[in-house]
Design a binder for these strands. Structure first.
Lengths: 138, 138
DNA sequence: AAGGTAATGCAATACTGTTGCATTTATTAT
DNA sequence: ATAATAAATGCAACAGTATTGCATTACCTT
């Protein structure tokens, strides 16, 4: 994905184009896996912690990233491809977390629609845990 | 569930029987929903915060409770019925979180077994979000 | 009932994330 | 291109969540 495309992503989500945002977005796209705040802090030590937090928040609020539920105590984020805009979020795909390397990946498979009598269901989130191909090979 | 049964639960999970543990376990069972640390703190203001945290941790490590993934920033826990022991955890049931009242409930429905080529999957976790029957009625 | 081992309470600390405010930067309209 | 305006940044301080070390207390085995 080239510079102008990254820029379009920001513009399309009504976000101003700044160095921080471009660098963070590029990092997400290149890494192609879910990233935590710590990943960003390690990579971008020259940006202020607060700015990185705010970048994650504005990206999440505007549909560039989605927050991935996890019981580890700190948030991880993944890129929203195509489906999300400012007012319409859809993340009904699965996430996989590797027990060995800790990496979280978005799995391109939809979560089966589920209905439970008496409940009104808006969103479904699914996290699979196990061992990823990389760690299995090693 | 009577006192002696609660005691058995602790014994079966190789945990010493103490006041804190009995009270916390009883509270979980009676509430019949997922609870956060804050819920415990509000209820048991006479116990030390640290003790409550340690109770949650030992319960989780020994299969009395399971930690429910959630993107809200603080952990919630649910009772493990029957399926879990010290060395074998199985929590492939669903959780429902109500957007309105915030309550998290364990849904007694199993998650369909999923396999993804190249991945070894040990556990599946699913969180549904929406509005619960109580809030729909109100 | 006594001894060993684990749980508790307190204080201090670490970690994760947010808020207020002055300054700088990006965008819009001229 | 430039000025006006609105938002993003950096810094400092703070808030909330959770953990660690250690002395004391309680549990449980024999």
């Amino acid at each position: 994905m080239k510079y102008s495309d990254l820029k379009s992503v920001l513009k399309n989500h009504k976000l101003r184009v700044t160095d921080t945002r471009m660098d963070v977005l590029e990092f997400f796209v290149k890494q192609n896996k879910a990233l935590s705040f710590k990943d960003l802090e390690d990579r971008f030590s020259d940006y202020d912690r607060v700015t990185l937090y705010r970048t994650l928040n504005s990206f999440t609020e505007n549909g560039v990233l989605h927050k991935i539920p996890d019981d580890s105590g700190f948030a991880t984020y993944g890129v929203c491809y195509d489906t999300c805009s400012h007012d319409h979020h859809r993340h009904d795909h699965m996430h996989f977390k590797c027990k060995q390397c800790g990496e979280i990946k978005c799995i391109d498979e939809h979560i089966p629609i589920i209905s439970i009598p008496g409940f009104e269901i808006h969103e479904a989130n699914m996290i699979l845990t196990g061992v990823c191909p990389n760690c299995l090979a090693a």
